[in-house]
Amino acid sequence: MNTALLYALVGAGLFFLGLYALIVHAHLLRKILAINVMGSGVFLVLVALAARTGEAAPDPVPHAMVITGIVVAVSATALALALALRVQAETGRAELPEEPLE
């Protein structure tokens, strides 16, 4: 097993770990963190496998994609945090109502 694959496997693990946390935790902050862990997992898979060029320099395209992905993730996280604060201010709880259907 080479290093690139090892990191990629960690990335896959993080993705599913984050998914588990996203589903089981009710608190919005935990859900937002879970999404971020999932995102990091995906980015890790993208970047790690870029090292398989067979040369010293990795493939730059996935690196650029990850920078794009990180910026998107930052924006999404900022919006999510602001929204979570508003939900808490409005409903008194930092959780989503249990029954989404009226």
Binding site: M1, G54, V61
Partner: peptide, 15 residues
């Protein structure tokens, strides 16, 4: 994990 380990290597991508 199995899928990731089945990926070809070396793979130059677009470098």
């Amino acid at each position: 994990g199995y899928v990731l380990s089945s990926l070809p290597s070396p793979a130059p991508g677009l470098s």
